[in-house]
């Protein structure tokens, strides 16, 4: 099988685009696709200081690599962050990969160590609060990214959510009747000046398979292992499997579904963020008087002091050159 553009050996066939591409042309195709999504969804209108959250997995690593190749075109000031959630060897190896990647792409970065800053790892906080690890993990990541952004005049936080992730969440929120959360799946969430950065998903039209191909073909330092706490079966994974099987029979169906959602549905979600205000304890964004992290730690400890210390820890961190 040969590349449609240069007749070199193809590494991937993309039926939805009626293309087979070699390594070089696949890279160019994906980078152009991300640039188009950024423009299509007006992702970088609200500033140029962009923080990229990198976990060490294939998707966020691909995101950082692509944004670094687009930074002069888009005039971006890129910063990276890795959050060490305290998941033992898994976190340790992920961090090694991410630090290598920051060096490769020459992006200033900072590392957040949760156990050092907050005094709890994700598994510890999960067992003390009796809440699932994945929900604690999500909460910590959102909080931390908002806090870093606030203290470093970051305009935009970019995350590695892919086409498959967003589709799986859309369907899951419909199945579980969690309609009020659908607004979060838009390609871009607007900033609230002085309180919250804009949040963007530049990989929203890139599939996980494309991210994986990009990561392997560019030899990115990626942790291909699974999070030790990811469940054996989950609704998201089953939805992904279902859509991947549909895509084989109906090439392009995933992107069509996403675009319909964004075009037809997400307009009706304007304003469904609710009334975002400052948490009365820590000052970070919250949909109620006290934010989710303060509530959680307050319940576990009987005091908010760990959150306030965590906040100071984040405030004291600096971005360093790789």
């Amino acid at each position: 099988m040969y590349c449609k553009l240069c007749r070199c050996k193809a590494i991937i066939r993309l039926p939805y685009a009626k293309l087979s591409l070699c390594r070089k042309h696949f890279n160019e195709f994906i980078e152009r696709k991300v640039l188009k999504s950024i423009n299509r969804y007006h992702m970088v209108n609200s500033g140029r200081r962009v923080l990229v959250a990198v976990s060490g997995g294939k998707d966020s690593s691909t995101l950082l690599h692509i944004l670094s190749s687009l930074r002069s075109t888009l005039k971006l000031e890129l910063y990276g962050v890795y959050i060490d959630l305290g998941l033992g060897e898994y976190s340790k190896y992920s961090r090694e990969c991410v630090e290598k990647l920051f060096k490769t792409v020459n992006v200033e970065y900072t590392i957040i160590e949760l156990e050092k800053g907050l005094g709890y790892s994700v598994p510890k906080l999960s067992s003390l609060s009796k809440r699932p690890k994945c929900s604690i993990c999500g909460l910590i990541k959102r909080y931390t990214l908002n806090a870093i952004a606030l203290h470093n005049r970051i305009d935009i936080v970019a995350t590695g959510h892919t086409l498959d992730d967003v589709i799986a969440y859309i369907v899951k929120e419909f199945i579980t009747g969690n309609y009020s959360q659908l607004y979060k799946l838009k390609p871009k969430l607007d900033a609230i000046p002085g309180l919250m950065p804009s949040r963007i998903k530049p990989l929203i039209e890139v599939s996980e398979r494309e991210c994986l191909t990009y990561a392997i073909s560019n030899k990115l330092p990626v942790h291909y292992g699974e999070c030790p706490y990811s469940p054996e079966v989950s609704l998201e994974m089953e939805i992904k499997q279902f859509f991947n099987r549909l895509e084989v029979k109906h090439p392009g169906i995933k992107i069509q579904f996403l675009r319909k959602f964004v075009k037809e549905y997400s307009k009706s979600l304007e304003g469904s963020e609710g009334n975002i205000r400052k948490c009365s304890v820590c000052g970070l964004p919250s949909s109620s008087d006290i934010c989710a992290l303060c509530k959680l730690v307050g319940r576990v400890d009987g005091s908010y002091s760990r959150v306030l210390d965590f906040h100071k820890y984040i405030e004291g961190l600096e971005f360093k050159h790789p």
Binding site: I11, D59, S207, E208, I216, C227
Partner: peptide, 26 residues
């Protein structure tokens, strides 16, 4: 280790073949 194959490529007995699964998370 590094050669990415399409579905129409041919593999032989004894080849060092790795299948990476794309879906992640849960």
């Amino acid at each position: 280790g590094s050669e990415i194959l399409t579905e129409y490529d041919t593999v032989r007995e004894g080849d060092d073949i790795v299948v990476f699964l794309a879906p992640s998370g849960g």
